[in-house]
Deep mutational scan, measured.
Amino acid sequence: MTEYKLVVVGAGGVGKSALTIQLIQNHFVDEYDPTIEDSYRKQVVIDGETCLLDILDTAGQEEYSAMRDQYMRTGEGFLCVFAINNTKSFEDIHHYREQIKRVKDSEDVPMVLVGNKCDLPSRTVDTKQAQDLARSYGIPFIETSAKTRQGVDDAFYTLVREIRKHKEKMSKDGKKKKKKSKTKCVIM
């Protein structure tokens, strides 16, 4: 069974824990209790493949930012979460993405942009803004509501699919490099 290491990042209060708990335990946590770091595991079937999701729910508070490099190193894919009623959390996505790329030393890291709290009427981040940002990053965008469960499975499952595509691409690139290195030079 394939294991996928997913990391949920975003500013404090955007609903990272609520999304994760909704996926794992099928219930909505409405009281806000700032996370330092929590880890969850769940076995699911995605596109006919049974897999184990190892999900790291991270601290959004700035005082825990020193811990970010460590979990970013171990993560295979990242859910970059903002709240649709919090423009600052949307603007912060850029910083999370840049930090992930720096730590992973790669421009090509599996990510999904997630606009959470889409059940709320007080939207300050337009869907088109988020779609445009995701398009500019070359990553999928999904709106979710941890409260109603809308888009929750889709967000995590899409990230797994992005990781699969990335692994497939990397193995193809690896095979191309191996083929090239088999060419021999004969000096007579």
Rank of each mutant, 00 (worst) to 15 (best):
Y157K: 13
E162S: 05
G174Y: 00
F141R: 01
L133H: 05
Q150W: 06
S145V: 07
A155G: 05
G151P: 10
F156P: 00
V186C: 03
Q131G: 13
F156L: 06
T127K: 05
R164S: 13
A130W: 15
E162Q: 12
T148M: 08
R161V: 03
A134C: 05
K182W: 01
D173Q: 07
R161T: 15
V160Y: 05
L159V: 04
T127R: 03
Q129N: 08
Y137E: 11
K165V: 04
K178G: 11
K167N: 10
S145Y: 03
T158D: 04
K128I: 10
S181Y: 02
S136W: 01
S181D: 15
R149D: 10
A134N: 02
C185D: 15
I142S: 02
T144G: 03
Q150F: 07
R135Y: 03
S145P: 00
M188L: 08
R135I: 07
I142C: 06
R161I: 00
R164T: 14
T127M: 11
T127D: 13
K167F: 02
T158G: 05
H166N: 11
V152L: 14
M188C: 11
L133M: 09
T183P: 15
F156E: 00
Q150M: 11
L159S: 00
V186L: 07
K178C: 11
K176S: 12
K178V: 14
I187M: 15
I142V: 09
T158F: 05
D154A: 10
D132Q: 05
D153C: 10
L133I: 09
V125Y: 13
D154P: 04
H166Y: 12
V152W: 15
A155V: 10
K180W: 07
Y137S: 09
S136N: 09
D153W: 07
K175G: 13
K128P: 05
K128D: 07
V152M: 13
K178R: 06
G138Y: 00
Q150G: 13
K175I: 05
Y137L: 13
V125Q: 06
I187G: 15
Q129A: 12
T158E: 12
T183Q: 14
K172I: 15
T183V: 01
M188T: 12
K165Q: 06
S136V: 07
Q131R: 13
V160F: 08
D132G: 04
K175A: 11
K172L: 08
E168H: 11
S136Q: 12
V160C: 05
V186K: 01
D154T: 10
Q129M: 10
A130I: 15
E162K: 03
Q129R: 11
Y157N: 12
T158I: 02
D153A: 13
V152F: 13
D153N: 10
H166G: 06
C185R: 15
K128C: 09
A130L: 13
V125R: 06
Q150T: 15
K169M: 09
G174S: 10
K165M: 03
R164H: 14
Y137Q: 06
F156W: 05
A134H: 01
Y157L: 13
K177V: 04
V160D: 01
S181W: 01
K172H: 14
D154Y: 05
V125D: 13
D154V: 06
I139C: 07
E168L: 04
C185M: 13
A130C: 12
K167Q: 08
S136I: 05
H166S: 10
T183H: 12
K128Q: 06
R135H: 09
A130Q: 04
E168G: 05
M170C: 11
L133R: 08
A155T: 02
E143A: 05
E168F: 06
E162V: 01
A130K: 02
K169D: 15
K177P: 14
L133T: 07
M170T: 07
G138V: 01
K180S: 14
H166M: 14
G151T: 04
D154K: 09
T127P: 05
K128F: 11
D173M: 02
M188P: 15
D132F: 03
G151N: 12
R164D: 15
M188D: 15
R149G: 15
E143G: 04
A146F: 00
R164G: 12
D173G: 10
L133K: 04
Q131I: 05
S171G: 15
Q129S: 11
K167M: 03
K128Y: 07
L133P: 02
D126A: 05
L133Q: 06
Q129C: 14
S136P: 01
S145T: 15
Y137D: 05
T158C: 05
K169I: 10
D132P: 01
G174N: 06
D132T: 04
Q150V: 06
Q129T: 09
T127E: 11
D154E: 13
T158P: 01
K184V: 00
S145A: 14
A155Y: 00
G138I: 00
G138T: 01
S136T: 09
S145W: 04
D173W: 02
G151V: 11
T183F: 00
Q131N: 08
K177E: 14
F156K: 00
V186S: 14
E162A: 04
T158M: 08
I142G: 00
K169P: 11
Y157S: 14
A134R: 01
Q131H: 03
M170V: 08
K182V: 08
E168N: 06
R164I: 15
K175Y: 06
K165L: 05
C185I: 02
K128G: 06
D153R: 09
D126E: 13
S136D: 14
T127N: 13
H166I: 08
D153M: 13
T144V: 09
R135C: 10
K167W: 02
S136F: 06
E162F: 02
K176R: 05
V125E: 11
V152K: 06
A130M: 12
I142D: 01
I142L: 07
M170Y: 03
D132H: 03
D153Q: 12
V186E: 15
I139P: 01
K176Y: 12
V160H: 04
L133V: 08
G151E: 10
H166D: 10
A130H: 07
S136E: 14
C185V: 06
Q129E: 09
D132K: 05
D153F: 09
V152G: 07
Y157A: 14
T158Y: 11
L159K: 00
V125K: 13
Q150L: 07
R164A: 13
I142Y: 06
K165I: 07
T127F: 15
D173L: 08
K128R: 06
L159A: 02
R149L: 05
V160A: 06
Q131F: 04
Y157T: 14
Y137G: 06
Y137F: 11
D153T: 12
K128E: 07
